[in-house]
Structures are given as C-alpha cells and as structure tokens.
Amino acid sequence: MLPRVARLVRFEIAKLFRQKLPYLVLFPIVGAILLVIMNAMDVRGEAPGNPMVRNGYEYLTTSCLWALRLVSVFAVVLASLSLSSEAAQGTWRMVLVRPVTRTDVFVAKALVVAILVLALFALTIVFSWAALHVVHGFWRDGAYMSPLTEGKFTLMGEEVVPDPIRPQEALASDLRLSLALSLLPLLASGFFGLMLSSMFDNTGSAVGIAMFLAIFLYGFASVDRSAGKYVFSHSLEYGLVVAKHRAEGFSDRKWEDDGIRRAWQVPLLSGFLFLGAAYVIFLKRDILT
C-alpha cells in the first residue's frame, strides 16, 4: 500500500502546486503578518517599562495568532476542495481505473491536506520571523541585533532595554509551546474540510458551506467562551493568546494544565472523528455518477 500512497501523494502535490488557489491564500496571510509587524512602529519611542511598550516576542506571537486564524479558515476551505473537485471535474474514473484503491486515494488526500496545513503553518512562522527581523532588526555597536535578543526586553526601534521580569528564555518557551498547541487545531480544521469535501459533488457547495461553518464556529467560540473551549478550531487561540498576554507583560496570566490539555485533546479527538467520518462517507458514496 505504501508505494501506491506515495505515488498518489506525489500526484496530488503535483496537481496542488499547479493551481492558483494555494498561492492566493498566501496574500491575506502575509498581509495579516505585515499589518501586525508594521504596527509595531506606532509604539516606537514609548518609555521602557511602560506596559504598552511591546517586544519582539509579543509581535511574533500576535502576528502568528492572526495569520494562523486565517490559516485555520483556509485549511477548511482548501481541504473542502480536495475530494469534491475530483467529483466536480469527473476525474475520479480516470484515477480509479489505475491500480490504486479508494483507501489509497483517501489516505493520500488526507496526507496532502496535512502537508498543506503544515506548509502554511511553517510559512506563517518563517515569514513572521523574517518580517519581524527585516522591519525591526537593528544595528548596534556595528553589529546586527535581533528584535528577539537574548535576555533583553526589546523595544521596537533602536533601543534595547534589559527586562528582568520577562527573560528571553521564558518568552521563547512560551512561544514554542503556543505554536505546538496551535498545530493540532490546524490539522483538525483541515480534516474538517476533508469531511465536508467527501459530502459534496460540487466545489461551490463544498467551499461555501466550509467557509460558513469555519467562520460560524469561530464566531460561536468567541461569543460563548465556555462552550468555545470545545470547538476544535478555537483551541489554537488558547496557547497563542496566553503567550501573547505573557509577552505583553501587563497580564499575570499563567499557563493552566487544564487549558493545555484541552488545547490538544479537543482537536486531536475532533481530527480523528472528522477523518473517520470522511473515510466512511468517501467509501460509501457513489462518487462515479
């Protein structure tokens, strides 16, 4: 089975990156990152120690938060095209008369959704990091200094002030944990899109409903915070919001074990549920007519 799935993954990736849509979604993501990073200019010159003064970690966390919110919606939308576009184009027959099984095809599609989500996730981090360094990196004493300078509270602009309360190592650790916690919700969003995709034979319905549900779930989770904790896509908020508050310095927010556990358990369970449902629907539906 593995060689067949590997061939199908190559096949899917070759198709995916020859389409415009995966590149088009990069524009709003990059836009969100740049807006947040560029916004740091506004607080230049505020006094060190003022809680409103921000640092590189805060900006990195905030840009990742906004960009990954978009990635979460795009993951649902892009994944919703995965199976439905084959049905809409009528290409299933061409693929399934080859020596592959439906299970091979499904596994490959799910893997490609995961790869796409991981790629968008990685691009978000890399671009946020790069943008932060390009926009706010600076030279001091003849050497380039990163806005994430070790052991320093980094003021956007030219000054670097030590911050004993928020040492670099603690901020870096918060950022790593928050990003790790945001990965599973993103994957679950992708598999949610895949499940929707398995239900529809036309891409318009799949994308429309996927977008509506993704935005609805996000809105619902924001309005009803107690129920929102159990919405898979909203779990990515927890880690990034905590890390952002801690980086800002004017909140005494701490990591909660319950929150961390929920942030990976809810998307993990949801992801498996969506994958299982998508697989059963895909096998049972008559996709050839």
């Binding site: 061939r7 070759a14 389409q19 184009q89 027959r93 693929v95 008369v97 020596p99």
Partner: peptide
C-alpha cells in the same frame, strides 16, 4: 480503460495529465 466521457485536470497540459496518470502506475 476509458470509462464514459474522459475528464482530465483542465488546468494541466495534456502531457502533464498523462505524466501524472502514468506515475500512478509507477
């Protein structure tokens, strides 16, 4: 086999369609 009206990926060239489909057979 060619079952019913043959449908291909419209955004790909004829050659790429064939290369990808041949790739599925290894």
């Amino acid at each position: 086999a060619m079952v019913e009206i043959p449908q291909f990926y419209p955004y790909l060239t004829g050659r790429t369609n064939l290369e990808l489909l041949l790739g599925l057979s290894g």
